[in-house]
Design a protein around this nucleic acid. Structure first.
Lengths: 219, 219
DNA sequence: ATATCATTCAAGTAATCGCTTGAATGATAT
DNA sequence: ATATCATTCAAGCGATTACTTGAATGATAT
């Protein structure tokens, strides 16, 4: 109580950072960023136990990163602050640029081949208007159904053939998934390029797309 | 070694967040953001022991937030990534908006009086061009000497009178200090407004000013 | 009221963290 | 070489964290 205001403020800022300092909580945030979710669904998606999930969610709530509301007997968690997405993305940017380990992991995903630049969301919006591109949503089906980019086709990574069979060789494809931490889109791009398609990754995922006020449709 | 790439990536991102999750390290970052510093100087400024400071600095380095180089027998730490500043500021923004405790602390600083909006750095640059404003740098003298906004006057909080004696009542004053976590500027603004001056706080501190490529002068 | 379901609380354990103390390293200066 | 100085390493401590298990709470449904 008698600590200086300066120290008290730093304690609060550190509290927010600490909430982001566990991989399990980053996973939960990634899921919540897709849209409001209940505790049980989050536990299932992340593979954490229910009690553990609940505790992590409370840590996130204390940090102001998520909010919760009761709906019947379920408690629904929602992203508490749009800046939470920006915070998650900045963590990624700093790690990507400065940690050798990250570089190694990302290289491992692409078998050493250099991946092309990600497509900006502005560019994708323009392509959608032209109708000149195939958009792949490589998230699990339930997440796709809860909301996706208009015109996108949902496909699992191991079923890419189902889609590519109908495409011209060299066709342009843009893939996206959950957001900054999702690697499905990386993997899809590698697989598609190996098949000879002009595939690229969207910069950011559905949460960033929605956050910018762009259209999202549900099934 | 056999963990999934996804988990490995999240571990790395969490590592960056963890580096930001201790108040002591946020203090160190705030200092390093002012400019390159040695371990001893940082320990002195923060009140941490030398060994403890060194350990915290290594944590920050492992996270890619700072870099170090040897200069003679001293090791100099520098901000490793310009995005580190953005990350620090986002922590503050999220905490300010969502944590009741922060609101309480900031209110405590201003005796309940509502502080005016902070002045943007663009605005301040325009005012400097006009020469129509008094700029106060309320950081310790050594930090001022190491670099400050052109035309700023350095003054300690308890010596504000030394400056205000020469000013017209109602004169416009803009105060700044270290950056997002520094409260000197808040306190200066309150004190000056109580004396009848039209005082406001600059948004951000010297690091943000410099980061934008604006001019910084040393004594 | 009673039962059911989703979530949270409480207690316990192993691992990690922040800090201290004292010794070890690495670069200069004599 | 020897001494000095700044920094880092290593060991040890109390406190905190992530997770588990099992019980308690709170809202619906019967």
């Amino acid at each position: 109580m008698s600590i200086s205001p300066k120290a008290a403020l730093l304690d609060e800022y550190a509290l927010v950072a600490r909430a982001l300092s566990a991989p399990a909580r980053l996973m939960l945030l990634e899921q919540i960023a897709q849209g409001p979710r209940g505790v049980e669904g989050l536990a299932e998606k992340t593979g954490l136990s229910i009690a553990n999930t609940s505790q992590h969610l409370q840590t996130l709530r204390r940090a102001g990163l998520v909010t919760s509301r009761r709906e019947g007997k379920a408690v629904i968690y929602t992203l508490g602050d749009a800046k939470a997405l920006a915070l998650m993305d900045l963590l990624r940017v700093v790690a990507d640029r400065n940690l050798a380990q990250v570089d190694k992991i990302l290289r491992g995903l692409s078998d050493g081949a250099d991946a092309p630049e990600a497509v900006s969301r502005d560019d994708l919006a323009a392509r959608i208007a032209e109708g000149s591109v195939t958009i792949l949503d490589v998230r699990p089906a339930d997440e796709f159904e809860a909301g996706h980019i208009p015109g996108a086709t949902n496909v699992a990574l191991h079923e890419l053939d189902r889609i590519t069979a109908n495409l011209q060789p060299g066709a342009e494809i843009i893939a996206y998934c959950r957001g900054p931490y999702c690697i499905y889109a990386h993997q899809a791009v590698v697989a598609l390029r190996n098949k000879g398609f002009n595939a690229r990754r969207l910069d950011g995922g559905l949460p960033e797309w929605r956050e910018e006020g762009r259209q999202v449709v549900a099934v």
